[in-house]
């Protein structure tokens, strides 16, 4: 029996949607998602026309199957009124569908005033959510019942933010802002994914959306930002190293990845791609984080994108302290 990492055996797999939501749509984090009625309306239209067309087709195939000696019956070869009728009826139906889709879209598009604003930055292959107080996290935490507006951009290629439970999706385009808003009515944890193909680790560009109660949210925000001050810098830096996804390219055990390993890198002199040399000190690390393309170590590609605006100065300091410990 196929065993999926010890989690499910094939026989135990849920046959249908036993994991929340309806057969077609996943669990919603809002009470009345504007999209759902439109979805089911279209589904009904689809089902109606599919069974009409395929039903008639099947009926004709059986009823008028070729029989020896039986000639096809004469019918008219055109009937303008009929043609107009079956052009106009679908036209009316799609008109209704358009309007429903449009109305729901406008509702999903126009953010109400007083939204809680969170900045989102997509980068290969990680999400960074920055809160009004300057704190950044790699998962999205939002308060319940409060409209939240995400102002989004990307530092490298196009990404797309999708939260199935909230029925929202919007691309993150480098060089500009896009935005979405939503209001989560149900506390819980939901999935957030990247749906615009963005490279090798596209399928790992995931995050969680945690909907807190109002008090919990404030408490979380306060506590989450605190580790920078409560922990020793090197330890805080280690947490940051994990959260910001530095580990994806820079190992701490000496193996070369997309970028140089951080093990023992501090204090040494390295050759640059353009032939010069550089001593890896506080300034160089700071520059490498903020202007990664400025000085590339020999043997590496200039592929890292900047963290300008994504890390605070204090955070960089903790990262430097962390790198110093890697000997």
């Amino acid at each position: 029996m196929i065993d999926l990492d010890g989690l499910y055996s094939l026989a135990e797999l849920p046959l249908l949607a036993q994991t929340g939501g309806s057969f077609w749509l996943p669990d919603a984090a809002t009470k009345d998602p504007a999209m759902d009625p439109v979805f089911y309306l279209i589904l009904a239209v689809c089902a109606l026309f599919f069974f009409l067309v395929v039903g008639l087709m099947g009926l004709f195939v059986v009823r008028y199957a070729r029989r020896p000696g039986v000639k096809p019956q004469k019918t008219t070869t055109h009937h303008t009124l009929l043609e107009i009728v079956w052009s106009v009826i679908p036209l009316i139906i799609v008109g209704v569908i358009f309007y429903q889709g449009f109305a729901a879209y406008m509702e999903m598009q126009n953010a109400p005033s007083g939204c809680y604003e969170i900045r989102v930055t997509g980068r290969q292959w990680q999400w960074v959510f920055t809160y009004p107080n300057g704190y950044s996290d790699d998962n999205l935490h939002v308060p319940v019942d409060l409209p939240v507006k995400l102002t989004m951009t990307s530092t490298d290629v196009i990404h797309s933010l999708w939260i199935p439970a909230l029925r929202v999706k919007m691309d993150l385009v480098p060089g500009r802002y896009t935005s979405v808003w939503f209001r989560a009515d149900k506390e819980g944890t939901y999935r957030l994914l990247c749906t615009e193909y963005c490279g090798d680790e596209h399928s790992n560009m995931l995050a969680a959306v945690v909907v807190h109660s109002a008090e919990d949210f404030q408490e979380w925000l306060k506590g989450a930002a605190d580790y920078l001050t409560t922990l020793p810098p090197a330890e805080a830096g280690k947490i940051l190293y994990q959260r910001r996804g530095c580990f994806q390219c820079h190992s701490t055990d000496g193996t070369a990845g997309t970028g140089p390993s951080l093990l023992g890198i501090y204090g040494r002199t390295h050759t640059l791609a353009d032939g010069g040399t550089v001593v890896v000190d506080d300034n160089y690390i700071r520059q490498s984080i903020l202007e990664p393309q400025a000085k590339i170590l020999a043997g590496y590609q200039p592929v890292m994108s900047t963290y300008q605006g994504l890390v605070t100065d204090d955070e960089i300091t903790t990262l430097i302290e962390f790198i110093k410990t890697l000997k």
Binding site: L25, A34, M35, V38, F39, I42, V45, C46, F49, F50, V53, V54, V94, I97, F98, Q100, G101, F102, A103, A104, Y105, M108, S160, W162, P164, R167, V168, K169, M170, T195, E196
Partner: peptide, 21 residues
């Protein structure tokens, strides 16, 4: 028939936001 009809989901704005990509 199925392909064309399911296109309605993608042509309507609200549903496309959910099922796009």
């Amino acid at each position: 028939g199925i392909g064309g009809l399911t296109g309605l989901f993608l042509g309507a704005l609200a549903t496309d936001l959910h099922v796009h990509d």
